[in-house]
Amino acid sequence: MANGSRQAAWEFFGTELKRRREDAGLTQVDLGHRVFVSGGYIGQFEQAIRKPQLDVAKRIDEVLQTDGFFERLWRKLIKDQPYTEYFAHVVELERLATEICEYAPTVVPGLLQTREYAQAVFLAGNPLAADEYIEELLKGRMARTRLLKDATRPVYWVVLHETVLRVQVGGPAVMAHQLDHIAALVRERKALVQVLPFTTGAHPAMGKMMKLMGFEDAPPTVYTEGVFSGSLLDEPAVVRRTQSSYDLIRAAALSSEASLALIESAAEDHRRCASST
């Protein structure tokens, strides 16, 4: 399904939600209270500005007694897009965010990946997959990276553990190009990047990626990821605790200038390795 068609389908989702909510005699606030989101969220669903998560779609069906209509439509729309079900909502939120803060302990974050690096990551996780499947994954990943090139891009601040710079994903030539790309984004002031060096030792959230997203008219959200799974969290206490952990990581990381120097030095190390093979 093309992006335009998918957006039209989400608009249909919103139109139906509004119609059936009003038929039930409920305000946006009434429905939001019953499905455990704000009335403002319901309004954003109805305008196709924001997409509900699956559990919310299910609760809407229960409250409006729509016999699974919104769950089925949600599953159809998620199936017809290039992201895994648990990550699709994150992609939508990235587009709405005014600020994204991310910590990456092992792998370059998707928003910063080059095509060659992303391909190596996908092939490592899908060694027997057909080329067509890998290409679909790459299309989705590369579409996400365009977010940082938009005039209305969010403030993007990422902390990379030094491991990310050293592990040769795709080989030394791919890594050199990947780190050059990150350095270029920093120099173009499209991303704020810090490196947490090996010498830091123990630190908060060891081995755990985290993404914090802030919005102009909605509460902040945290995304964390496991093995073939992910969790979106917006409970205020959890968000505050995650923000505190991220602030500690950011404070322990190298300065922006020192981080850029280390990224460029690591790129040169990979380049020398590539030329010697």
Rank of each mutant, 00 (worst) to 15 (best):
A24F: 03
V164N: 13
G25Y: 13
T84S: 05
L77M: 12
T98N: 15
L64V: 01
P127Y: 06
Q194A: 04
A173H: 06
S5G: 07
E62T: 13
G171W: 12
A88H: 05
T114D: 04
F13R: 05
R72E: 08
E16P: 07
W157C: 08
K76V: 09
V91Q: 11
V158P: 15
F122Y: 14
N126T: 08
F70H: 00
F13T: 10
A143K: 11
A252P: 13
A120K: 06
R272D: 06
S259V: 04
K149Y: 02
T163D: 14
K51M: 11
D131V: 05
I134Q: 00
F13Q: 03
M206E: 06
A24P: 10
R34P: 02
F122H: 09
L77S: 07
P236T: 06
L248A: 15
Q178V: 01
G68F: 09
Q65A: 10
R50F: 05
P82V: 08
G4I: 06
V63W: 09
Y223D: 01
D131Y: 04
V29R: 13
L112E: 09
S5L: 13
T224C: 04
P105D: 11
E22R: 14
A251P: 11
G201N: 06
V238A: 11
T152D: 14
G32A: 07
Q119G: 10
E264L: 00
E62C: 00
H33F: 02
M1C: 03
R20T: 11
D61C: 12
K76H: 13
A129E: 05
E132W: 08
G39Y: 05
Q44I: 01
L128P: 09
Q119N: 11
K211I: 15
Q178A: 09
A261F: 01
A120I: 11
D269L: 10
A130K: 13
L165Y: 12
D23W: 06
K139T: 08
K139D: 12
R21T: 03
A267Q: 01
I182Q: 00
S256D: 14
Y83R: 11
V108D: 07
L179N: 00
M209P: 15
L123F: 00
L31T: 00
K190P: 07
R19T: 15
A274M: 09
Y156Q: 13
K76T: 12
R50D: 04
P82F: 12
A57M: 03
S275P: 04
P52G: 08
G125I: 12
V222G: 00
E264F: 00
F12T: 13
E102D: 15
D30C: 07
D217I: 09
Q53F: 02
K76E: 12
I263M: 01
G201D: 05
G230R: 00
F215I: 02
A251W: 00
E116I: 08
F122M: 14
Q53I: 09
D131H: 05
R20P: 13
